[in-house]
């Protein structure tokens, strides 16, 4: 491509933008709304994913120890537990600590649990976390086999159901996003088709004069990238402002943790902006080709 052509393409693209101002605004709005909806869905998915991770990471195994074990037996069990593949951490909880925890969760300082109970009825225990929470049931089965452990608890039944739910939440949100992308492409392509339709005579003439398809395409692509990027930028500004204020106000309202990592968020915003530009080009490509068939 000659440098003269690049200048020509840029000049043509921006001439067309200012000449078809109303259609340019329509395209920018379409892209902005599409990206806004898409961005909203992406943020929702990321937060749902974080919530799923959070819920899953809470899954742990509690192994209760028999009452009359010696100190060395207790530490032997710890070694056995650590040796199981997939175990991330093993944490000893003494009977006294277990009672303190119970005291804390039931009523705090208002009741004196220790006095009411008299003798501490709780056993010593180990809390075991898995590298992958999905392996908890298998690990629990192995833990149960170790001598000196009389009971294993990991929320049997509930955990399996939780995993089923998180699995489906992840799939549904991915499908939702893919569908939204398709809808956005269709919507943007339709708007751009209007802009191209207004110039079909020009395109037809260019074809008959002997201009190559790419020579005709370039100015339209530059236009598409520009409109898409501007639309994307507007969308992420709205999205960032909205999500920012949500983070500030929601902290106090809900126990659910929102994703606030600026690294993740800026990645999301940059991707959405690129997505806008790509949608602009894609929409142009789809709409333009039929007019080039002369």
């Amino acid at each position: 491509m000659r440098p003269g052509s690049i200048i020509y393409f840029l000049r043509e693209a921006f001439k067309s933008l200012s000449r078809n101002r109303l259609l340019s605004i329509a395209t920018i709005s379409t892209v902005a709304i599409s990206i806004l909806i898409l961005g909203f869905a992406v943020l929702l998915t990321i937060n749902a994913g974080a919530l799923m991770n959070y819920l899953e990471s809470d899954v742990e195994i509690v192994a209760f120890l028999e009452k009359d074990l010696t100190k060395s037996q207790i530490s032997d069990i710890k070694q056995d537990l650590t040796a199981i593949t997939g175990v991330k951490s093993v944490n000893f909880v003494s009977r006294e600590k277990a009672l303190d925890k119970l005291q804390e969760s039931y009523g705090g300082k208002e009741y004196n649990l220790k006095e009411t109970l008299g003798k501490n009825p709780l056993p010593n225990s180990y809390e075991i976390k898995a590298n992958n929470p999905h392996n908890v049931p298998q690990i629990a089965a192995q833990v149960k086999k170790i001598d000196g452990i009389y009971k294993v608890n990991y929320g049997q039944g509930v955990v399996e159901r939780l995993f089923k739910v998180t699995h489906w939440v992840r799939i549904v949100s991915m499908v939702f996003i893919v569908l939204l992308v398709f809808a956005a492409v269709f919507l943007i392509a339709t708007t751009i088709r209007l802009a191209i339709f207004a110039r079909r005579k020009e395109i037809y003439l260019m074809k008959l004069i002997g201009s190559t398809d790419w020579f005709i395409r370039w100015p339209f692509f530059i236009e598409g990238v520009f409109l898409g990027a501007v639309g994307g930028l507007i969308a992420i500004l709205i999205l960032a402002a909205g999500y920012g204020s949500l983070i500030n106000h929601m902290d106090a309202l809900f126990f659910l943790p929102l994703v606030t990592d600026p690294g993740i968020l800026s990645n999301v915003y940059i991707s959405l902006m690129i997505c806008g530009a790509v949608l602009g080009v894609l929409g142009t490509w789809i709409s333009l080709n039929r007019f080039l068939d002369v």
Binding site: G4, S5, G210
Partner: peptide, 10 residues
Amino acid sequence: FAMEVVGASS
């Protein structure tokens, strides 16, 4: 226009 679209120099 006819010359521009075939890439002629200005």
